[in-house]
Amino acid sequence: MDKKLNELKARLQAELRSVQDSEVLAQIKNKYLGRKGELTNILKEVKNLAAEEKPRLGKLANDIKFELQSLLDKTEKIVSKPSGAGVDFDPTMPGSRREEGHLHPITLVQRDVEEAFAQLGFGIYDGPQLESEFYNFSALNIPADHPARETQDTFWLENHNLLRTHTSNLQVRMLEKYGAPFRGIFPGRVFRYESTDASHDHTFYQLEGLMVDKDISMANLIAVMKSLLSAVFRTKVDVRLRPGFFPFVEPGFELDIKCLVCGGNGCSVCKQSGWVELMPCGMVHPEVLKFGNVDPSVYSGFAFGLGLTRLVMMKYKIDDIRLLESGDLRFLRQF
């Protein structure tokens, strides 16, 4: 009977939405609340109910009757107004909207992420995209013959310069400039020498983070990432660390988040594992601190690299990375 009553209410609401004149309204009123109306019929059934159910359902039926009555009254007031008094135009025409501009989806997501970090006292910094071998590699403990250089396919320019392969190029630049303690993020454009397809592009966006202070620990890294990612995704996020190797951190980790689509039960997004690989991170390598003129016996810190482009694609369910730099307004006007 609960179901019947609620269904009745929903049906009435739907019918009232399209009522234009009082004649139709009167018919509806009769259909529901009349002497042989639907509600009246249901109310009659109350007396046949089991004694213990009677009081509760009786009350529910009366409440709904009252609600329906007031809905009808309200509609009556609107309908009974002399039509179009003082209005000589068609109010159902679409509203006139002013032309709107749109921010790029990467800008939108970057703003959200920046805001979350700013609240924890992280500054936002920018730096060169055309970079030297030194800051992109050597200062990050990746010397000339290191195989890690090979795994980051690089666009080379003249004079051993290059297009930065990651936003980590700013780690040492920022430490040189600001020293320790330091807390900052560096969002921006990075490049990899690779051919493009729906899921790879030679150009994408990252957001590097660096925190250096006294006594910074792995426990801190996990906690900060957990809070920040919860803020970014606007929901409580579970994270896990597992070993990952990057020459500029020690220990190094891959950070996974519990799949937000299935809640960790396994689905196609997380390839049935319950976890999604989100970002590499780790405790800043003492060599990197030294390059930044920071004394590793006094300070420690953590660094992480969030894939902004990947986050944007996850958030808006974009299945072709190339759309982001297509400049196609049919795409951009959706944001």
Binding site: R98, E99, E100, G101, H102, L103, H104, I106, T107, Q129, L163, R189, F191, H202, T203, L324, E325, G327, L329, L332, R333
Partner: peptide, 10 residues
């Protein structure tokens, strides 16, 4: 100002 932001390659 009703401008739409585009990102293009470097």
């Amino acid at each position: 100002q009703s401008y739409t932001e585009v990102y293009t390659y470097a």
